[in-house]
């Protein structure tokens, strides 16, 4: 009986990670179908830290502008200063669990940071980098 309980508890605790694996794998399949291949955490990390100059305002932007370089730490919205919960799924299990959320933030944040939408390859690389943090 006790064992059963432990087993069930372990399963329940694991649900977020399954959800994460589900959402990420669904999107990876999608990005592959759109032409992405060999998603790499290194490429994702490099792009995460890469700096872009904004065409309109001329300021330098990167993912770290808001999320900071340490993804296990909370970030801060560049314009409003609102706290952003940590990106790393090990610290914040809610991350990478909802396809809809991932899509929305990729569109919004790629546009702000890179000045354009990200390619399927770039998005796949980001997921490869983030999912194992």
């Amino acid at each position: 009986m006790k064992r059963k309980l432990v087993g069930i508890t372990a399963l329940l605790l694991a649900i977020p990670f399954y959800a994460q694996a589900d959402a990420v794998s669904e999107l990876e399949t999608e990005y592959q179908a759109q032409g992405g291949t060999n998603f790499s955490a290194e490429a994702g990390e490099a792009l995460w830290n890469k700096e872009f100059i904004d065409a309109k305002k001329g300021d330098t932007r990167s993912c770290t502008t808001c999320h900071t370089a340490d993804l296990k730490q909370p970030g801060k919205h560049a314009q409003t200063g609102k706290a952003i919960e940590p990106m790393a799924p090990t610290v914040n299990p809610k991350r990478l669990t909802e396809v809809k959320q991932i899509r929305k933030w990729f569109v919004r944040n790629c546009k702000w940071t890179l000045g354009r939408e990200c390619t399927p390859q770039e998005k796949g690389d980001f997921l490869a980098y983030l999912k194992n943090l």
Binding site: K56, K57, Q79, K104, V107, R108, K111, W112
Partner: peptide, 13 residues
Amino acid sequence: MQEQASHFGEDLS
């Protein structure tokens, strides 16, 4: 809401 694509410099999409 009309101009959510340029919401204070951000495209809300």
